[in-house]
Structure formats: C-alpha cells, structure tokens
C-alpha cells in the first residue's frame, strides 16, 4: 500500500513540475515573440545612430546599414579578419564610407574604431567603439571623456601633410595626453593607414 502512495506523490510532484515548466516556457515564448521584433528594431536604430555619428544623415539618402560589404586589408585595418564597410550615397552617387578599423598597437591591446570618410577624402568623424586603455590616461580617446577624437574631423591625407599626422611631441598636429603617448599615436596611425587605404581604393569600395 505504501509504495502506491509514494508513487502517487511522486507522480503528482512530477506532473506539477512538468506543468510549471510548460507554463514558464509558454510565457517565455510569448514574451520573446513580441520583444524580438522590438529588439531588432532598437538594435538597428542604435547601430544607425552610431554610424550617423561619423557620417551625418544630411550627406546621404540611401539605406546605410543595408549597403554593406566586407573588406580584408591587414595592413590598413589592423586585422586579418574581414571588416564591415558601409557605403553612403546621395542620389546614387558615392557620398562617403563608414569603416570599422583596429589600432593594433594600443597600450593594452586593440582599439576598435569607427571612422567616416567623405568621398573627397575628408574625414567625417572618428569614434572609439571599444578599448582597454588605462583609465585616466589613455581613455581620453573616448568622446565622453575628452573632445580629442573630434580633432580628426575634416582632415585630409596628402603627400605634403603626411608628417603632420602625429602628436605634437612627434612634431605633428595632434594634442598628446599627459602620461599617455602610446594611445594617441596608435589611434592616429590607425586612422592614417585606413584613410590611405580608402584613398588608394577610391571608387572601387563603392562597387
């Protein structure tokens, strides 16, 4: 008799657990089904906002996120991995590019950058996506901490001004940070190499 009671209790418990699991999973599926599209939309919006920081909306009218391709250029982009490149067009004509690039020689590891370049070779903007530089020294490359990263805006790279792409200590145009010279050097070099690559490739990147 006792075994029956035990098995009934066990069965009842198992059934109840099962019921809970089913209800929980059902709830999760329901919530997921209506948050999923919202998340995708916000994700897209956030990405577009990031891209627009380095490529203002008034300069293009195509779908920037969709008009994307991958490029592999280890010397210029600091990585052997293919990097995304977004093409901005105004009425179908090339307006500018947004490129992800990496400064591989930061003080502590890679510095991921996003940079926008107008079709005429001027820089539209540069932002740091992620980095591990020392807090208080190298992290002035973030726009939240310092305006330094804005000093790239509008710059071009030509044969004549290549030497000005350096910090002031190296007789260039850019401010350095007290206590951290490696970080700004790394960022400047990465932007310079990427810009050089973009200039060399020219319209090919829009195809």
């Amino acid at each position: 008799m006792k075994t029956t009671t035990l098995s009934t209790t066990m069965l009842r418990a198992a059934g109840l657990m099962g019921l809970f699991v089913v209800v929980s999973v059902g709830l999760l599926v329901a919530v997921n089904s209506f948050t999923q599209p919202k998340i995708a939309e916000v994700e897209r919006q956030v990405m577009l906002n990031t891209l627009n920081q380095v490529m203002p909306t008034r300069y293009y009218n195509n779908n920037l996120i969709e008009d994307m391709t991958w490029v592999t250029a280890p010397d210029a982009l600091g990585t052997t991995q293919p990097m995304p490149i977004y093409r901005a067009r105004l009425d179908g004509e090339p307006a500018g590019l947004v490129i992800e690039t990496i400064a591989p020689d930061g003080y502590s590891g890679n510095i991921h950058l996003l940079m926008g370049v107008f079709a005429d070779g001027r820089i539209a903007g540069v932002r740091v996506l992620s980095h591990r530089e020392t807090p208080g020294l190298g992290d002035k490359i973030e726009l939240r901490k310092d305006n330094w990263i804005l000093s790239f805006n509008g710059r071009q790279l030509t044969k004549d001004n290549a030497h000005t792409w350096a910090v002031k200590r190296d007789r260039g145009d850019f401010e350095q940070f007290t206590g951290a010279t490696i970080t700004p050097r790394a960022v400047i070099n990465a932007v310079k190499h990427t810009l050089d690559y973009v200039n060399l490739q020219g319209v090919r990147l829009y195809e």
């Binding site: 657990m17 699991v21 929980s24 999760l28 919530v31 997921n32 948050t35 919202k38 998340i39 916000v42």
Partner: peptide, 16 residues
C-alpha cells in the same frame, strides 16, 4: 523555475 522565468522576461523587456 519561477525566478528564472521572471528574470528572463525582465531581461527581454529591458533589452527591448
């Protein structure tokens, strides 16, 4: 199960 479910729901809502 209840707590995990609640956390996941709130995680998804905050994500959205």
């Amino acid at each position: 199960a209840i707590i995990a479910c609640a956390v996941t729901v709130i995680d998804m809502l905050m994500h959205a």
